[in-house]
Design a binder for these strands. Structure first.
Lengths: 137, 137
DNA sequence: CCTTTGTTATATTCATGCTATAACAAAGGA
DNA sequence: TCCTTTGTTATAGCATGAATATAACAAAGG
């Protein structure tokens, strides 16, 4: 799967990394049991520090997307245990998006179509085996 | 209308302020032509620095929610000029939310119901005249 | 005149992001 | 047994951004 890092973005590198992994899971390019590169390996390929990758992995574990152990490295494992916390986070994020949409005269139908199109797009994804690293300029 | 500021939140104060104003507009508590408190007055009531409020106001102007002039202060004025930029921002934000939702087994129907409920909630709001300031602990 | 408005400038303090280097225990392979 | 690799932790340094503190300015209005 593809990991894109934009060094010119104002978004933190570890946050970009976390988001890319979550997108990969949603697109079914990363499945339960799949291994992620080790923190040192991925850091080396991306050209960032080890701790930056480690921070992303620790965040993904905290939010229930991967499990980390010393022998297998980081392994995809989506947990539904603390789902209520995740759902609450999604709610508040969605509230701000809907508020902006209403202000900018985006109708309910437009928004629901947007959500549906995104669900379709995520479901229609292909699968790739290797993790390819790509950096934006 | 009510402005809540959480000093313990990890979210920047000026960003919280910006979001609260946008929520106020979406709830129809703030309408086109309504005046916001001056940067100094609101800063004084909230107990924050003048520049923090000024930063939020400048951001709101940049995103087309208010107009600022020297005589009337900040006035609500939702612009649909640079809408394409706003829509693009909404799209990328929504993409991450949907990705997380798919990972956490939230169905398309659940998400669309969530969007609809939020549209309903925003439309069913009452109106208040004064701007009341409230700080979280 | 005087006040208030947004705006700009400078400086300081503090938190965060990122890097650099190092070391540790645990597991697996040769 | 030795070596490598794994995640993890610790410490330090640097850069950036957030927030504050003062100060000053032009423009508008009473």
């Amino acid at each position: 799967m593809l990991i894109e890092i934009d060094f010119n973005s104002s978004e933190a590198l570890y946050m970009q990394l976390r988001n890319q992994i979550i997108l990969g899971i949603a697109r079914d390019m990363l499945r339960d049991g799949d291994s992620l590169p080790s923190v040192r390996q991925l850091a080396s390929e991306l050209g960032v520090n080890m701790h930056t990758v480690n921070k992303a992995y620790a965040l993904l574990r905290q939010d229930g997307y991967v499990k980390l152990d010393r022998r297998n490295g980081a392994v995809i494992s989506v947990s539904l245990e603390n789902r209520s916390y995740q759902v609450e986070s999604i709610h508040s994020d969605m509230e701000m998006i809907v508020a902006q949409a209403i202000c900018k005269d985006i109708s309910l139908n437009e928004m629901q179509k947007l959500v549906q199109d995104m669900y379709d797009a995520f479901s229609a994804r292909q699968t790739s085996i290797d993790i390819i690293v790509e950096e934006k300029e």
